[in-house]
Design a protein around this nucleic acid. Sequence first.
DNA 1: TAAATAAATGAAAATGGTTTTCATTAACAG
DNA 2: CTGTTAATGAAAACCATTTTCATTTATTTA
Lengths: 157, 157
Amino acid sequence: MRGRFDFYPPWWHGRFKGCGYRITVARQAILEILSKTTEHLSAEDIFLAVHKKCPNIGLTTVYRTLDLLVQMGLIYKHDFGDGRARYELAEGPKGKLHHHHLVCTKCGRVIDYTDFIDQEIELLKQTEKGLSKKFNFKITNHLIQFYGICEQCQKGN
Amino acid sequence: MRGRFDFYPPWWHGRFKGCGYRITVARQAILEILSKTTEHLSAEDIFLAVHKKCPNIGLTTVYRTLDLLVQMGLIYKHDFGDGRARYELAEGPKGKLHHHHLVCTKCGRVIDYTDFIDQEIELLKQTEKGLSKKFNFKITNHLIQFYGICEQCQKGN
DNA sequence: TAAATAAATGAAAATGGTTTTCATTAACAG
DNA sequence: CTGTTAATGAAAACCATTTTCATTTATTTA
């Protein structure tokens, strides 16, 4: 049975129209993949997932689409130090909790956490203010990440 | 005129000996370059600088030496998002102030800052403790970085 | 001090994620 | 439906970094 909103176009259509971008099969497929996972997918991950449904979509298009989505602010591009970029939906129609990441340096697992975010934000705000003033540096962004060994890797192997 | 300590081997010799590593011309040259700059040099920067004095030292050796130095904890390897790793001496014989970085997303300039570090460290400590407990994650490292536009880039160009 | 040995090195090739090129296809305004 | 132009796919290019392998060199041993 169809949900109540299935007759309306996906929420991101407006964003595309507003920017003059075309809504293509590839772009819809890629956004669909990203909106159906909580993982941090690499370009290749996304390519493989998209490929199952649309085998004619190439890796190049995946990269180009991801760049576009990052530039539009629809997704985040992360570097967890494993030599490949990872992507994550920035927000859904309902919005999404701001979070930071715990990265396991052994298996590469990434854990999102929202705890302590308030304190972090507070500190960041103060630091940003101080640094902006002292160095006359206009801060637009920050990166906080913790590295270590996850539960699983501490136990077996 | 020679300084008082020029007759003693450089302070890192002990570290090498202790680990069973050999003290070679290339390693000394690379460490010398790194200890004479406050900049965040890329492997190629270092290769070029070393090349002036010792044209026979190859880029491969620079990469290998940098890996070794990182592993020994003598230098830090940073990723400021410009597609190449950057290296910085971790500490001198007198030690070095712990600092974080402000990265200009326009020109790539990196500013070290030590201000607010105490508060940051305090927050990090608390956060690490909380996260370790909640996720049973053994945190070994963290990354804090601010991005924005530097003074020069705000003005001209 | 000279020979032995194992680590370190240089040059060239390989790797691998990402970007560019260019001819073709498809979205969508009219 | 048709023309315009953005979007695309395939292949090649890119570029920082790593690997291979034969040679050199720092250090050990005799």
